[in-house]
């Protein structure tokens, strides 16, 4: 069962459960770009509330059958022995995002639909690419650039901080769109005291010294692991506090993937083992926590 239809936000896609004549219960699960909304429906028996999956984005509806997990099946009260349950994942994917376009250019095929959403705030467990901006002996601070497979974090932060206009549009004292002027903010019933960062400021992350690698944690030194300017592949381990996500590189495939020698003044370096990088033009060797980033 698959169809491609376009949905607008609020559009009903399917009720949570559907039954067929042939003793099959179709169970639908709300995926990306959808939510479950109670809709009142009237029929001869009166008005009832029906749980319906509705679209939250403008995009294509994708309905994909998923393998049943035995646990889930037990949760459903199957009264009849002959009845079988089929589960489907319902998602709405927006029209090609920047990430999807890049994916098509590089890989030559379409990116999987379930990986294409419009706004990609980092979530726990996501792999992100981050740029190291500051070090101290307890932690490395970085700014999160993209969520792997999902694209840049926020369009406007992408333009402001990562794009070509970064140095032109953002003044040293902060951006022009900042919200730190309460007198001009009309109303905010939803939350008090949530001050937004300046325009072009990205979501920030922290890699603590104990999260750099999984072995011999007490011997890790920040300065031997990262330098400002490095691009790091890391995993979100916690949403952290108000301003920072907590990141970890304690896995073989996580760590520095891009670094320049001599504090950014030199050339691009290559990893020769998991804790050393070498600059091919000068032969200089620097210490990093390198990622073994091989796709297979």
């Amino acid at each position: 069962m698959s169809k491609t239809e376009i949905a607008v936000p609020g559009q009903y896609i399917t009720p949570l459960y559907k039954t067929d004549n042939d003793n099959v219960i179709h169970k639908f699960i709300a995926g990306r770009g959808t939510t479950i909304s109670p809709i009142s429906a009237s029929d001869e028996e009166g008005t009832r509330e029906v749980q319906v999956i509705v679209a939250t984005l403008l995009g294509k509806i994708k309905i994909k059958e998923i393998e049943n997990q035995p646990d889930n099946e037990q949760q459903l009260e199957v009264k009849n022995e002959d009845t079988t349950v089929k589960s489907y994942l319902v998602s709405v994917t927006p029209k090609a995002s920047t990430y999807q376009k890049f994916h098509e250019q590089i890989e030559g095929n379409e990116a999987p639909d379930e990986e294409n959403i419009s706004i990609n705030l980092p979530r726990e467990g996501d792999i992100v690419l981050a740029r190291v901006i500051r070090l101290n002996n307890k932690q490395a601070s970085c700014e999160i650039l993209t969520v792997e497979n999902y694209g840049n974090v926020g369009t406007d932060s992408g333009l402001g901080a990562n794009g070509e206009s970064s140095h032109k549009s953002v003044s040293a004292s902060g951006g022009t769109q900042s919200l730190n002027n309460y007198s001009t903010v009309a109303s905010s019933n939803s939350l008090i005291n949530a001050t937004s960062a300046d325009l072009g400021e990205t979501f920030k992350g922290i890699i603590r010294v104990q999260d750099i690698r999984s072995t011999e944690r007490d011997k890790v030194k920040i300065i031997d692991s990262f330098r400002p300017g490095d691009i790091v592949r890391a995993q979100i381990i916690s949403l952290g506090d108000g301003s920072n996500y907590y990141l970890s590189t304690a896995r073989n495939d996580l760590g520095v993937i891009y670094a320049k020698s001599e504090g950014g003044a030199g050339d691009l370096m290559f990893a020769i083992d998991w804790q050393t990088m070498v600059c091919p033009s000068t032969g200089i060797i620097e210490k990093r926590k390198c990622a073994k980033y091989i796709n297979n």
Partner: peptide, 20 residues
């Protein structure tokens, strides 16, 4: 504009503001 990062303490949801 948004969702944009905030400063200050953790919030489990976005703050929404309108200016006309």
């Amino acid at each position: 504009f948004g969702p944009r990062p905030i400063r200050g303490s953790f919030t489990d949801r976005a703050s929404f503001s309108v200016e006309c």
